[in-house]
Design a protein around this nucleic acid. Structure first.
Length: 591
RNA sequence: GCGGGAGUAGUUCAGCUGGUUAGAACGCUGCCCUGUCACGGCAGAGGUCGCGGGUUCGAAUCCCGUCUCUCGCGCCA
């Protein structure tokens, strides 16, 4: 028998009446009635009320207990009288009449109360993360994370994926984010890098013939943080498959994501959230920009953006007309049931648009068969008809150069949606963004460069590279997006050295450039590589969506703060001079 | 690197256009209380108002600088 407990703090009920039991846990709440004390004892599993009265010998010692001390109690399970049953607790029909107790570990006065749900400052929460993790919300989030990860792992293994571990100390990647570097003691002046993703290793495993790879992979990128981006490290469900096309990759991962979301769609929710059924909607990259104004559209938002340039060509609305002649386009967003809103509604949106740097936000309202608003009188009936408005609809216009009009249209779409509360918050809407361009022009140098992953296979292969305008070549490159959050990007990889040399040549790299940058990868491709591809959904973001948390730190047990510091462990920190000398490192004094 | 918000008791916060000894709640300490579950009641301790400078008879409050936290931009093949 375990010396610390016969039961967990969630287990006891009327079916255990009169049993002698032992429980161990934390002192969650103390209610001291003078000659009668109630203690709520808490462990990972639940709460049990313990009661001690003054006649018992241990009473004085119990009286000295502090919150969050760890104790072991033994006593008898007794039924509560009907009027003292607590329906909020699973153990609320019983309590433990304590006759022995032992203080296992005393707690000092807490810097952060554990038994309350009030929000506290992040600095204290991060410094005393072990206390924050005891609190209900964070504790449950981390348990949810475990449930999600173990479910993913089971499904991937059941689907024939093999789990691997890949190196943490590896070489710096020439493309992408900044690397975290680790100095080498044996090779002074040289550095390992932590992997930004196991990209090359998983491809090498495909070349090694393992057919299907997966890993719950730690990734390290030295980027500045955001609410949905933890600095330092994050985890991906990294997977890769051999002898597949893009559709095969989609078919493999869609059921996994759908099921993981569906299994956890009740967490912290009154009603279960709906999850979009697979196959998920596929949207071309260019279409996404045209219709949603972003390459990570939130499909819960019912608004769409359409092109209205034709209504303004040769119209009397000089401002737009002049812009169109200079190459601008007009985008419009139609909104239901707003045409009768007061003038102030439209003025506020216009004001917002100006604050966002736009010239303004024009609009037309269609009520009782007549077109209203400042712009309407400048269009003739045919031009207005083209807008295709129904009764009580409004349409908002954005006029700018194509790319700027698209992106600002995306902002307007989000703004109107949130102002009018059009979002169905209780759903998960997935889509694939496909057909990313292989190349783009660098804004500053005007040179052709890779727009995404240089290892992706160009659509049309060698033929496309040799004969098409590089800027119109698409790649087998795709992102999966859920509720406006980019969960992952992936690709069918380029497994042919001849196509790779050519692809890099277009981006201005010579054969020897690539051989220097990716020696391992290139060498491997020379000895028989299967066609392969994969993707890597972000685990932290999946948990964040399912936990309905706006901040990624709420689903990571030990996150760093925004400045990439671990306030609890005090990292990063200075190191001893002798250690630096051993590594051949000399610090520059900034002063 | 840039922009927004914040920094007052152990914690969460209030403190108006400058004006006595800077408040509340929770927590903490002591006392009272045998049916609470956010137990209740009484009393008490606890503050360099982030830090430095300035304006003023007088600064938590106004001004300048600086540091820290946070949100966003840049960054994120």
């Amino acid at each position: 028998m375990n010396v610390y407990r016969t039961h967990k703090c969630s287990e006891l009920s009327v079916s255990n009446l009169n049993e002698k039991v032992i429980l161990s846990g934390w002192v969650d709440t103390i209610r001291d009635h003078g000659n009668l004390i109630f203690i709520d004892l808490r462990d990972n599993f639940g709460l049990t009320q313990c009661v001690i009265d003054a006649k018992q010998g241990i009473f004085n010692k119990i009286n000295e207990l502090t919150h969050e001390s760890v104790i072991k109690i033994s006593g008898q399970v007794i039924k509560r009288s009907d009027d003292t049953i607590n329906t909020k607790l699973s153990t609320g029909e019983i309590e433990i009449k304590v006759n022995e107790f032992e203080l296992l570990s005393k707690s000092e006065v807490l810097p952060l109360p554990v038994n309350s749900d009030i929000e506290y400052g992040e600095e204290v929460r991060l410094k005393y993360r072990f206390l924050d993790l005891r609190r209900k919300k964070l504790h449950n989030n981390i348990l949810l994370r475990n449930k999600i990860i173990s479910s993913i792992r089971r499904k991937m293994i059941a689907n024939g994926f093999i789990e691997f571990q890949t190196p943490i100390l590896t070489s710096a990647s020439p493309e992408g984010a900044r690397d975290y570097l680790v100095p080498s003691r044996i090779h002074k002046g040289q550095f390992y890098a932590l992997p930004q993703a196991p990209q090359q290793f998983k491809q090498l495993l495909m070349i090694a013939g393992f057919d299907k790879y997966f890993q719950i992979a730690p990734c390290f990128r030295d980027e500045d943080s955001r609410a949905d981006r933890s600095p330092g490290e994050f985890y991906q469900l990294d997977f890769e498959m051999s002898f597949v096309t893009q559709d095969d990759v989609f078919n493999a991962i869609e059921p996994v994501l759908y099921e993981v979301f569906n299994e956890n769609n009740k967490y912290n929710r009154e009603l279960p959230a709906t999850v979009s059924k697979y196959p998920f909607v596929r949207i071309g990259y260019e279409d996404a920009l045209e219709i949603y104004g972003t390459d990570k559209p939130d499909l819960r938002n019912p608004l769409i953006i359409k092109d209205c340039t034709n209504s303004f060509i040769n119209s009397n609305f000089k401002i737009f007309n002049d812009q169109i002649k200079k190459g601008s386009i007009v985008k419009g967003i139609v909104v239901d049931d707003t045409a009768d809103k007061p003038r102030s509604f439209f003025d506020k949106l216009n004001q917002w648009a100006r604050e966002e740097g736009a010239a303004g936000l024009g609009y037309i309202n269609f009520v009782d068969n007549s077109y209203k608003g400042p712009i309407a009188k400048n269009l003739d009936q045919d031009q207005l008809k083209l807008l295709d408005l129904k009764n009580n609809q409004s349409i908002f216009f954005i006029c700018d150069k194509r790319k700027d009009a698209q992106l600002f249209g995306g902002k307007v779409r989000e703004k109107i949606c949130s102002d009018l509360n059009l979002l169905n918050k209780n759903s998960f809407e997935f889509c694939w963004i496909v057909d990313y361009p292989m190349y783009e022009l660098d804004d500053k140098t005007n040179k052709v460069q890779f727009s995404h992953n240089p290892f992706s296979m160009p659509q049309g292969g060698m033929d496309a590279l040799e004969n098409m305008n590089p800027l119109s070549i698409k790649a087998f490159q795709y992102d999966i997006v859920c509720n406006g959050v980019e969960l992952s990007s992936g690709a069918i990889r380029n497994h042919r050295t001849d196509i790779m040399y050519k692809a890099f040549e277009i981006a201005g790299y010579s054969k020897s450039d690539i051989e220097k940058k990716f020696p391992g990868m290139l060498n491997a491709l020379k000895y028989g590589a299967p066609p392969h591809g994969g993707s890597a959904p972000g685990i932290d973001r999946i948990v964040m969506l399912l936990a309905d948390e706006p901040n990624i730190r709420e689903v990571i047990a030990f996150p760093m703060n925004q400045q990439a510091m671990d306030l609890m462990m005090d990292a990063p920190a200075n190191v001893d001079k002798t250690i630096l000398e051993e590594l051949g490192i000399k610090l520059i004094d900034k002063n």
